[in-house]
Design a protein around this nucleic acid. Structure first.
Lengths: 203, 203
DNA sequence: GTTCAAACGGACCTAGGGTCCGGATTCTAT
DNA sequence: ATAGAATCCGGACCCTAGGTCCGTTTGAAC
């Protein structure tokens, strides 16, 4: 599992070059499928061996790109101010989290697609999914009207899956703001199910 | 696009043999990925050429299997009695439809996985998805408290995606009935969202 | 400057989807 | 029954793309 840092400057430089090249290639092409590892290597001016040594395999490269993009949002979620940060009341934070996920996928359509769906193994085994899920589940747990926080978290996240987002944005040509509003409505509906259990709350 | 019927009995026999063999193989193996076309051909006692002539490509084979399994449910939905049939009131039919989808995917885990996720192209382009979606959307349209029936239909269907079901059943070991209950709860919550738009209804 | 571990890079390997075509099988007309 | 045409069979073959190997080069430490 090659993933450790190297101190040699050529290694570092090449790693950056590959990341940049891959980023550009995925952005440029319609489908992630037609960006091959050889393409990436060539675009980065590097041999395939170098590429694979640095990232292990295709999924490793995708993951590296993905994590890089995700970092700011992770920060905002873990230690940032409301509405994403941990001090936000649950009923408000859940929609904010899902909105953040949606926006992220809209901003990184191709990349998210490549990582989540392109891979041969289930996206549910990815650690970043696991992180989102457990966070969302924990927040949902705080909302009394929500039963089955585990399943609910899965179901809500499913509404933001990369290929669905891609379909809505690409095929159905739904504009960004509209999609955000729809998701927001949906989340609200799920959370608002209180009445069923008897507590209609304030407002 | 070879998909026309043949009248020659050897062709028909072989087609059946392939279908049966593929069915057995997909059921037997953990992941659809490790059932190759060559495996199917061998198991059916047939050459690869025969296999590809009959079904066009891998997706074609999967589709043929899938459609076969789906047929009964399609019948039940289109012309059957409640709670699946068209005479059912919307608020009751929506959960029934999603429950049917869930059960189908539970009963055909590997196959659904192979077709929906294994393929290189988006599952949202598949015609069977389109069918479920437009039906669900139409039914949701009849429920006044539901806004954005199109998106809602997508989001609800996303909760029954093959790889999620597989994850829940396989990894999290959630028993069938529990999963059905969870999905049912979730759907109910989404449909019950009336109160939010200002009309707190009766209760 | 010498040394050696580490990185380089591209030839090479492999798996699996898909194609091809000479030969076998089936249908039809007589 | 049989010739002939149409269709089908099957497995050798091709191609792509991910991943590996290893002789060569580079960089850093002394």
């Amino acid at each position: 599992m090659p993933e450790r840092q190297s101190s040699r400057k050529d290694a570092i430089r090449n790693r950056e070059a590959v990341l940049a090249a891959a980023d550009a290639l995925f952005a440029r092409h319609e489908s992630p499928e037609d960006v091959t590892m050889a393409d990436v290597a060539a675009a980065a001016g590097v041999g395939k061996g170098t590429l694979f040594r640095a990232f292990g395999d295709r999924a490793g490269l995708l993951r590296a790109l993905y994590e890089g993009r995700l970092e700011p949002i992770r920060q905002a979620v873990e230690t940032g101010p409301p509405p994403l940060g941990p001090t936000t009341p649950p009923r408000e934070r859940v929609p904010a989290l899902l909105d953040a996920v949606l926006c992220f996928k809209l901003d990184n359509r191709r990349l998210a697609l490549a990582l989540e769906e392109g891979g041969s193994s289930s996206p549910y085994r990815a650690e970043h999914y696991e992180r989102w899920h457990s966070l969302l589940q924990a927040v949902l747990e705080e909302i009394p009207s929500v039963t089955d926080s585990g399943f609910t978290a899965h179901a809500l996240l499913a509404a933001t899956r990369a290929d669905l987002v891609e379909h809505l944005a690409g095929e159905e040509r739904i504009p960004r703001e509209r999609m955000r509003a729809q998701l927001s409505n949906f989340v609200t509906a799920v959370l608002a199910s209180g009445p069923l259990q008897g507590l209609t709350a304030e407002e």
